[in-house]
Design a protein around this nucleic acid. Structure first.
Length: 783
DNA sequence: GCACTGAGATTACCC
DNA sequence: ACGGGTAATCTCAGTGCG
């Protein structure tokens, strides 16, 4: 018997002769990996009896039944909250998930229950919520050594009661393994059914890089070597790029076809696809860095090269294009490039993992989702999990997901901007507008008063214009959840202020703050999402209506006090900077709106066109702030974006368009003379659905069909890169895959009149300089 | 047959 | 597979003209 401390990394469930039990994987305080088995927690669900059947009949029905669930351990009646109602629920606990499932079926079939609650939550998740364990945090428990079995790596313990979290900070030393694979076909994309894996490169946190390269037609040996190498290194974290969708499924199928074994989990099992489409490896956290890249919206085309570049990670080699891999492999001279490329990718994935892990762990702890799941899970599911955890603590039942009817509702206000160049402007922002409104008006599905119910103004908020009413007390689920999120964030902020922090401690806190912010800001959208367990359109609609009212009041107050309003969107107002007037406005807001509005960005100059949601400013710190313009849009060519950025820069710094116009004319001239690389002309667009579902023949769709003809695999979400050539009339005829276009085929005139000129004219138009003037202008560029 | 027009499709952005 | 609001481009069918 010993007191065991461990950092919770992964967990699973297993049915053994002891019934269902929880397996916790972690790192102890001596950096050893441990398995802690908890047999003290059994799966359960709640049955809500029909009004005419007393709870006792449910217990009786279970006891009298002959099959399967005779082992129902207990059933007890509890009072629980469900959408603001108090319901009597029968808690049914079984020794195993299988018998619980059978018991649920039995009850449904007998027609004794109104609703069964909790059978759409996995046993292992239920365990975390119920017992209060926190992934990626330290725990403590009394445990005894469990006999090691050959299938287990590491030290196994049996805990005598459920472990509990302790206030022990820090992240243990984790063993990380990153891998990158190369597979190719003679033509097009490789298919696991026929094309072997040729290279597997592995980079580990002990700074070693190792590659395995196929020496014959079979990949049996390299998969085996990879698996052995992995088992020997025994990583806590295994990272890849696109590994959920491609890397692992491919390796798994290849292993199966070549007869190799890929039993790389800490139970000696193969990786498998699990919830949210993530690939799980028992006992290890399997992470896909593509999921993390999706948290970085500035990266438009999600490749490992781009992710590495944006994080400042140097790649000392890159792999050839997919379609050129076979050629490279078959050339003795070029073949080493594949190894070097794969090595470089594995290294980059390792470094990416090291950089982004803290955020993942922060998100994991906050939402109570295991590290490997949280990265892959969509925002809605993360909020879902966070709310489940909160709801548990407040005695709510967890409503099952249901099919909800989608109803559109009115959202935020966006003002038409005053077009032109403005000096000394400050953007004022409401601090967490929607979360605060949800807290202030107690907006929640469980506080929503039904239309038939009586409720006077002293006990209810009535939302102007909508008529929805919300009880002022008790606090609803959203108010509690958001209040606690805001409290956590303030606590973290305080921590960050601490002078004595080390860099790494500060970084951890910053990532925690980021995680809290993500979840806080997602709650409003979650409330209006039909997939949410706590979906309530009335809640989201009310928050939006209150938001409109708040921003309108600020705008009106500005007008009354003589502050020019240049633009406003949702929760921000752009006004001319007048220290005294603005300060008095801020005071007025905090005194009258029960909310805070804060100066956010300060502009020396800011330019608005007629369009909403698009502007460009020069901040007082000298940097450019470009919003919504072509510069920040991935579906415009690099050349158009570069020229527009320079035009913006010149206009804002000069305060006049003269130099910018000369520059633009010059840039167009250069382009017309072919002084541009094809690289700068690629236009990237996403495929959002399968090709055959497109109803109009857009350029990127046509090009995608060419990709397919070349044998490339495409799935929704893939980015199609194309360049417009001279051949053809319609744009979709002229567009060709970017990798097949040579510079002499480029339709330069399209890029002039369809890309660069419009992008430049968008800015210069504010000063009366038209696109035609740029296209046919008589003014010659400077010598 | 051709230029023009407006509706619809499509995507990526803002907050 | 978190919400609504928005700009912009291109296709495509319909229309008027000659």
């Amino acid at each position: 018997m010993k007191n065991l401390r461990f950092f919770l990394l992964d967990l699973g469930e297993k049915t053994t002769p002891h019934g269902s039990e929880i397996w916790l994987w972690g790192i102890d305080d001596h950096d050893r990996n441990v398995l802690v088995v908890d047999r003290s927690f059994k799966p359960y669900l709640y049955a809500i009896p029909k009004e005419d059947s007393p709870p006792a009949t449910i217990s009786a029905a279970l006891r009298s039944s002959k099959t399967g669930y005779a082992d129902a351990l207990e059933s007890s009646v509890e009072e629980k909250k469900l959408f603001g109602q108090i319901v009597k629920a029968v808690k049914i606990t079984c020794t195993s998930t299988e018998t619980l499932e059978a018991a649920a079926k039995h009850l449904s079939k007998r027609g004794l229950v109104q609703q069964i609650i909790g059978n759409d939550i996995r046993y292992s998740s239920l365990y975390l919520y119920d017992r209060g364990l926190i992934p990626c945090k330290w725990h403590e428990t009394e445990a005894e050594t469990l006999g090691t079995s050959p299938a287990l790596t590491g030290n196994a313990y049996l805990s005598h009661s459920s472990p509990h979290p302790i206030a022990f900070k820090g992240i243990p030393r984790l063993r990380i393994l990153a891998f990158s694979t190369v597979a190719f076909a003679e033509k097009g994309s490789p298919h696991a059914s026929q094309d072997p894996v040729s290279v597997i490169s592995v980079a580990t946190s002990d700074a070693k890089v190792r590659s395995f390269s196929r020496s014959n037609e079979s990949d049996h040996d390299i998969i085996t070597d990879f698996a052995n190498y992995l088992m020997e290194f025994d990583p806590d974290i295994v990272a890849g790029f696109e590994s959920n969708r491609i890397g692992w499924p491919y390796l798994i199928e290849r292993a199966q076809r070549s007869g190799a074994t890929l039993g790389i989990s800490r139970l000696g099992l193969q990786p498998h696809t699990s919830v949210y489409g993530h690939v799980s490896i028992a006992g290890r956290a399997s992470l896909d860095m593509l999921d993390y890249a999706n948290e970085l919206p500035d990266i438009k085309v999600k490749t490992i090269e781009n992710v590495a570049e944006s994080l400042g990670i140097k790649l000392n080699a890159i792999l050839p294009d997919q379609l050129d891999l076979a050629k490279t492999w078959n050339s003795p001279q070029d073949k080493p490039l594949l190894l070097r490329g794969a090595d470089a990718y594995a290294r980059a994935i390792l470094e990416t993992t090291e950089r982004l892990l803290e955020f993942g762990m922060a998100l994991s702890s906050l939402t109570c989702m295991p590290l490997d799941q949280v990265a892959t899970a969509a925002v809605g599911h993360r909020v879902d999990s966070y709310l489940i955890k909160e709801a548990y603590q407040q005695g709510h039942l967890i409503p099952p997901r249901r099919d909800q009817v989608y109803e559109r509702y009115q959202g935020a206000i966006v003002l038409a901007p005053h077009a032109g160049l403005h000096e000394n402007v400050v953007a004022l922002d409401f601090a967490s507008m929607y979360p605060n409104l949800m807290i202030l008006y107690n907006l929640s599905p469980d506080t929503l008063v039904s239309p038939t119910e009586d409720c006077d103004d002293s006990s209810c908020w009535t939302i102007e214009g909508l008529g929805f009413r919300f009880r002022k007390t008790p606090p609803g689920l959203y108010r509690n959840a958001l209040t606690s999120l805001i409290a956590i964030r303030n606590e973290i902020k305080k921590g960050i202020q601490t002078k004595s922090l080390s860099d790494s401690e500060r970084r951890v806190l910053q990532q925690q703050e980021r995680a809290v912010k993500v979840i806080t800001n997602a709650c409003y959208g979650y409330a209006g999402w039909t997939g949410a367990r706590w979906y309530a359109r009335e809640v989201a609609e009310s928050a939006a209506a209150l938001g409109r009212k708040s921003i309108t009041q600020v705008i009106d107050r500005c007008k009354e006090t003589g502050i020019p309003v240049i633009y406003a969107d949702t929760d921000s107002v752009f006004v001319t900077r007048d220290e005294a007037k603005v300060n008095s406005l801020l005071r007025w807001v905090s005194e009258n709106l029960r909310m805070e509005i804060r100066p956010d960005k300060n502009y020396r100059r800011v330019l608005f066109t007629e369009a909403k949601k698009r502007y460009a400013g020069l901040l007082t710190d000298g940097t450019l702030d470009i919003v919504g313009m072509e510069v920040v849009r991935s579906d415009w060519s690099e050349i158009a974006r570069k020229v527009q950025e320079r035009v913006i820069d010149l206009v804002l710094r000069d305060g006049s368009p003269n130099n910018a116009k000369i520059y633009a004319l010059n840039a167009i001239d250069q382009l017309r003379h072919g002084k541009t690389t094809v690289r700068d002309l690629i236009i990237w667009r996403s495929l959002t659905k399968p090709i055959e579902e497109y109803r109009v023949n857009a350029p990127h769709v046509q090009v995608a069909k060419e990709y397919l003809k070349l044998g490339r695999k495409l799935v929704p979400g893939d980015k199609i890169g194309y360049v417009v050539t001279k051949k053809g009339t319609k744009l979709y005829d002229k567009a060709r895959p970017y990798f097949e276009v040579t510079s002499d085929e480029v339709d330069t005139e399209y890029y002039v009149s369809g890309q660069v000129a419009p992008a430049a004219a968008r800015i210069l138009g504010v000063f009366g300089i038209s696109q035609d003037e740029l296209l046919f202008g008589t003014q010659r560029p400077l010598p």
